[in-house]
Design a protein around this nucleic acid. Structure first.
Length: 332
DNA sequence: CGGGCCCTGGAT
DNA sequence: ATCCAGGGCCCG
């Protein structure tokens, strides 16, 4: 499912297609996609129509589009970035992929053909049909269309006002300044954020009684980690998911964070993970990291480190995958 | 801080 | 027909 590396792949893929473009028209095909929008789908359309896209920013799994209003910012083209005051309250378009969301680029008038040459398109499955589960479309001023597809409707689009970050650092990957959407203010910095302080996060993990797995998934101390990368990071650090945060040494807590970051970087290098063809990049193609998973989804298969069978169990309605030999609770 | 909920569709 | 997958929010 889309976690930090997959969302970053989408952000990078989208960038050349949307930066500097104006949103001319917005279609909302399923109102539930605008569930988090104050004022509902009509307000979302009103906020977006006519706006120009200035930046694409990601923190954790949240991806937002920095927007400006060209009408109001007239005459300041090229030098408007650091203008004092600025033109009124700015909003960002928030996009979250949830479980099954995709952002796909199309450049034609709606025949369904991809911008990608036919020989590079994926073979089969839901991801190969660019019209299936389409929930919204942004029509840009150069004819490009950005489709938001979402089979399970856990994702969404909505607008959120900007406010300064607490630490004065840039809000996230791709952020031109320290302005953060208020709807992402409760989301911690992620492990690939240069402003993230891993030793400090490790110290905070150690003040908590909850299990390390639930802390990694909670987004409040560190963001961007979902069930796949939690499983992989804990496996790499030889830590059991049930270990209480307070039972971890500083060295060990720090190591879990570093290993999880390393796994994410490797995934990013190969275009993200896809183990069920639900996740794809903006071209509709999937990444190649699934073949590198050591624990997640590998119940009964040998641990790549010691050969023991990977064991699966449930925690809080989610599956955990561990090597019973490498990842012991008593290791602390 | 754990549990329920939202959702759909593929597997059983 | 039923179960299962899970990110994030809301509830107690």
């Amino acid at each position: 499912m889309p976690e930090l590396p997959e969302v970053e792949v989408v952000r990078r893929g989208l960038l050349p297609h949307v930066i500097g473009r104006r949103i001319e028209r917005v279609e909302i095909l399923d109102a539930r996609t605008a569930r988090r929008q104050a004022g509902g789908p009509h307000a979302l359309v009103a906020d977006l129509t006519g706006a120009r896209v200035d930046a694409l920013v990601r923190r954790g799994k949240f991806l937002w589009w920095r927007l400006s209003d060209p009408e109001r910012a007239e005459g300041s083209v090229g030098t408007d970035v650091a203008e004092a005051g600025g033109p009124g309250p700015q909003v960002a378009l928030m996009t979250h992929l949830g479980m099954s969301g995709q952002l796909r680029v199309r450049s034609d008038g709606g025949s369904g053909a991809s911008t990608v040459p036919a020989d590079t398109a994926v073979s089969e499955g839901p991801a190969s049909d660019p019209r299936r589960h389409r929930r919204a479309t942004l029509h840009l001023d150069d004819g490009t269309q950005i489709d938001f597809l979402d089979q399970r409707l856990f994702g969404g689009l909505w607008t959120s006002a900007l406010a300064p970050t607490a630490d004065g650092h840039p809000a996230g990957e791709g952020s031109p300044d320290a302005l953060l959407p208020v709807d992402a203010a409760h989301i911690a910095r992620d492990l690939l954020d240069p402003a993230a302080n891993l030793p400090a996060i490790a110290r905070r993990l150690r003040t908590r009684t909850a299990s390390i797995a639930s802390l990694l998934l909670a987004q409040g101390l560190v963001s961007g980690i979902g069930n796949i990368y939690a499983a992989e990071g804990l496996w790499a650090a030889r830590a059991h998911p049930d270990t209480p945060g307070a039972m971890l040494s500083q060295v060990r807590a720090h190591r879990i964070l570093r290993e999880t970051a390393a796994v994410m970087r490797r995934a990013l290098d190969v275009g993200g993970t896809s183990f069920d063809a639900l996740y794809v990049n903006v071209d509709g193609r999937s990444g190649y990291f699934a073949r590198s998973l050591a624990a997640y989804g590998r119940e009964g298969e040998p641990c790549p480190r010691c050969g023991r069978g990977i064991v699966r169990f449930q925690r809080q309605g989610r599956s955990c995958f561990v090597c019973p030999a490498c990842q012991r609770l008593s290791r602390g």
